[in-house]
Amino acid sequence: MTSRLNPEDQKRVEEYLRAPQHQVERRPFRPWLLLVVVLVVVIGLGLLSRLLSYLTL
């Protein structure tokens, strides 16, 4: 894909992205962990809502 920036601006962008503070090592994305966290939160909120409805009725 070609850049729509002029060459000077593109050079500045590349220098900015090459700076050490913009090259952070990240852990790999783990979708299964995200799924487990979402399920735990949904189940926990469901149980909390059942407990609150039991206590108020």
Score class of each variant (00 low, 15 high):
Arg4Thr: 15
Arg4Trp: 13
Arg4Met: 15
Arg4Ile: 14
Arg4Gly: 15
Leu5Cys: 06
Leu5Gly: 00
Leu5Pro: 00
Leu5Val: 01
Asn6Ala: 11
Asn6Gly: 08
Asn6Tyr: 02
Pro7Cys: 08
Pro7Gln: 07
Pro7Asn: 07
Pro7Phe: 04
Glu8Val: 04
Glu8Arg: 05
Glu8Ile: 09
Glu8Ala: 03
Glu8Met: 10
Glu8Gly: 04
Asp9Ser: 10
Asp9Trp: 04
Asp9Thr: 13
Asp9Ala: 12
Asp9Arg: 09
Gln10Met: 07
Lys11Tyr: 10
Arg12His: 02
Arg12Lys: 13
Val13Gly: 07
Val13Ser: 06
Val13Arg: 14
Val13Met: 05
Glu14Tyr: 05
Glu14Ala: 09
Glu14Gln: 10
Glu14Ile: 01
Glu14Asn: 10
Glu15Gln: 15
Glu15Thr: 08
Glu15Tyr: 05
Glu15Met: 11
Tyr16Arg: 12
Tyr16Cys: 08
Leu17Ala: 07
Leu17Asp: 04
Leu17Cys: 08
Leu17Tyr: 05
Arg18Asn: 15
Arg18Lys: 15
Arg18His: 12
Ala19Pro: 00
Ala19His: 02
Ala19Trp: 01
Ala19Met: 01
Ala19Gln: 01
Ala19Glu: 06
Ala19Lys: 04
Pro20Phe: 00
Pro20Gly: 02
Gln21Arg: 06
Gln21Asp: 03
Gln21Ile: 06
Gln21Val: 05
His22Gly: 00
His22Met: 01
His22Glu: 03
His22Ser: 02
His22Ile: 00
His22Trp: 02
His22Cys: 09
Gln23Asp: 02
Gln23Met: 03
Gln23Lys: 05
Gln23Glu: 00
Gln23Thr: 00
Val24Ala: 05
Glu25Ser: 12
Glu25Tyr: 10
Arg26Met: 03
Arg26Ile: 13
Arg26Asp: 02
Arg27Leu: 13
Pro28Cys: 07
Pro28Val: 08
Phe29Asp: 07
Phe29Glu: 08
Arg30Ala: 12
Arg30Pro: 00
Pro31Met: 06
Trp32Arg: 06
Trp32Gly: 09
Trp32Cys: 10
Leu33Glu: 14
Leu33Met: 15
Leu33Tyr: 13
Leu33Gly: 12
Leu33Lys: 13
Leu33Asp: 07
Leu34Arg: 10
Leu34Trp: 13
Leu35Lys: 12
Leu35Val: 15
Val36Ala: 15
Val36Trp: 05
Val36Pro: 02
Val36Phe: 12
Val37His: 00
Val37Ser: 09
Val38Gln: 06
Val38Ala: 11
Val38Arg: 01
Val38Glu: 06
Leu39Cys: 06
Leu39His: 10
Leu39Ser: 14
Val40Ile: 13
Val40Met: 11
Val40Arg: 04
Val41Phe: 05
Val41Leu: 11
Val41Ile: 11
Val42Leu: 08
Val42Pro: 01
Ile43Ala: 15
Ile43Arg: 06
Ile43Ser: 08
Ile43Pro: 00
Ile43Leu: 15
Ile43Gly: 02
Leu45Ile: 11
Leu45Pro: 00
Leu45Phe: 11
Leu45Glu: 04
Gly46Leu: 02
Leu47Asn: 03
Leu47Met: 11
Leu47His: 02
Leu48Val: 09
Leu48Asp: 01
Leu48Pro: 03
Leu48Ile: 10
Ser49Met: 13
Ser49His: 14
Ser49Gly: 15
Arg50Phe: 08
Arg50Thr: 11
Arg50Asp: 13
Arg50Ile: 02
Arg50Asn: 12
Leu51His: 07
Leu51Arg: 14
